[in-house]
Amino acid sequence: MTNVANDRHATTATGGPIQEYLDFPDGQVNLLRGGSGEPVLFLHAAGGAGHWHEFHELLARQFEVFAPDHPGFGGSDELPEVEDMSDLVYHYLDVIERLGLDRPHVVGASFGGWIAAELAVAAPHAIGSLVLLSAAGLRLPDHPVADLFLMTPEQLVGTLFHDPANAAGLFPADPDVDAILAAYRDQTALARFCWSPFMCNPKLERRLRRITAPTQVVWPSDDRLIPIAHGHRYAELISKAEFTVIEDCGHAMYFERPAEFASVTADFLARSSAYQSGVSR
């Protein structure tokens, strides 16, 4: 079980995030939003739901960042009708519509990166540009994703971070019952979508050619959870993709190197929005 601490919402040049709920037929979605500028839909990883972290704040200096918790994660209800990845894609098309976003930039990390890629495949014209950070979603039998469900908390920290010291504070040594239950709930939500097929949609790879959005694929050099071969495959199969490697960084890059991650993302989004405004926006 993972235990991500309840770090306070990062304090802020932008005045901090606004918290709100979006109503769905069988429950609510918890949403944090902040900043101003072009809209960025941020799709979180297995960890990190429910909180406004440093990287959100850094992105919010240039963009309006919308950070919903996936169904069953963080402050969002379970939404039982969202059973698998295809349901999640419809769910996020609803979220985009509900928020009134016009072709937002979509930034997704790890599990959220997989959702982002699926969204861009299903509705290429609903997406402005795409940033995939160590995205799950592909099945490369020669480069398997490590089984985070089978890891002890110590093993998980060692897998997610290039320097486990960077995890201090995020994974308390002696979590209380509520913290354990919150982490178990997030893992349960993840397992619902990711247990089998494990962390992937076997059909995604051949569908990636549908993506038309300018895409930045970002991978840490020392990703022990999702091997960098997955990043190369994404970059190879998405037609307008760039590939950036962050050196000396582990899978949990938005915790481990938030500034670098935010600047790579922000630079790319700024460039691609210039590109888009000159073409077909």
Binding site: M1, F149, L150, T152, V177, I180, L181, Y184, A191, R192
Partner: peptide, 22 residues
Amino acid sequence: QGAELMWPPGYMTPSSMRGLLM
């Protein structure tokens, strides 16, 4: 067998998990 082997995610309901921890 560690917790990860005995109680994979979703194997326990939240209330059963709370009862177990308590």
